[in-house]
């Protein structure tokens, strides 16, 4: 009996220790970012362009603008593509290609983000140079499969007899899907889109040789742009302490944005 109780206690200790061992570093990351980042957050940080290396001051306005451009462009490309694909997978049961497309889409979800960057480079950058568009394309390679998956699941949650009720009113199929099915699935679809925005806005690797970075504001989508994660990376591996501080500041901004989006989707939109 003593041995049994010992094993039982060992299980409890093992499971609690596992949590502690992982929770401490992860909470430390958040705390460090908060403390180190808060020092950099001045109005200038949000509104100014970076100063040359070694000079104090300046901000990350270009990176904030760049991230906004990249995320908007990516969503412009990938939301329609993913939504239509998800509709094809869930609303046209007679289609033959469904299984193949679903398999390829699932496989695509395993694409390492750096490979998406290489793909966009060989396909677009070699022809048109570094640009926001190439960056958005690389991000879309990651975003579309994720969204197809969540959107298809959202559509599948709509009960079949809702569709049949629509059809039995003599409403055309496309209208049943767009006005009834999509409307019913909207909260889940929106949460899928938002989570993808959160995920995409933190991606760095696909942007290294596509969006490339830009010390100034971008004036068009065919130009290189900066992005918050890109800037964090470049500043982090630089030798300048001021840039390190800026990297923490940019991290704090990015982290707050990403965690806020996650919290919103979790508590406002997810219906379970």
């Amino acid at each position: 009996m003593a041995a049994r109780r010992l094993k039982d206690n060992a299980l409890t200790i093992y499971s609690i220790l596992s949590l502690v061992v992982i929770a401490i570093p992860l909470l430390h990351i958040i705390a460090t970012t908060l403390i180190n980042g808060a020092q950099s957050l001045t109005p200038e940080f949000f509104t100014s362009l970076p100063k040359p290396p070694g000079e104090e001051g300046g901000g990350v306005a270009n990176a904030i603008q760049g991230t906004a451009i990249l995320v908007a462009l990516t969503m412009l490309i990938s939301v329609p593509a993913a939504l239509l694909t998800a509709i094809y997978l869930s609303e046209f049961p007679e289609s033959r290609l469904r299984d193949l497309i679903r398999l390829l889409n699932d496989t695509f979800m395993g694409t390492p983000s750096i490979v998406a960057g290489v793909f966009a480079y060989t396909l677009l950058v070699t022809k048109f140079g570094f640009s926001a568009l190439a960056g958005a394309f690389a991000l879309s390679v990651l975003a579309v499969p994720m969204m197809v998956k969540t959107m298809e699941e959202a559509l599948k949650l709509v009960p079949t007899d809702i569709r049949e009720a629509g059809l039995s009113l003599g409403i055309r199929h496309w209208r049943v899907v767009t006005s009834i099915v999509l409307r019913t699935a909207m909260p889940a679809i929106a949460s899928g889109v938002l989570l993808t925005v959160a995920r995409i806005s933190g991606e760095t690797a696909p942007l290294l040789f596509t969006a490339f970075g830009n010390p100034n504001f971008a004036t068009g989508i065919l130009e290189p742009v900066s992005a918050l994660p890109l800037m964090i990376y470049v500043y982090a591996i630089s030798p300048y302490p001021d840039w390190h501080r800026k990297a923490w500041g940019a991290s704090l901004v990015l982290m707050i944005a990403v965690l806020t989006i996650n919290l919103i989707t979790k508590y406002k939109l997810r219906r379970r």
Binding site: A236, V258, L259
Partner: peptide, 17 residues
């Protein structure tokens, strides 16, 4: 929530902490 922290931030923490 923590799983959603961008990897570049974890890298930054990795370098300095």
């Amino acid at each position: 929530l923590i799983a959603a922290i961008p990897s570049v931030i974890i890298g930054l923490w990795g370098i300095f902490v």
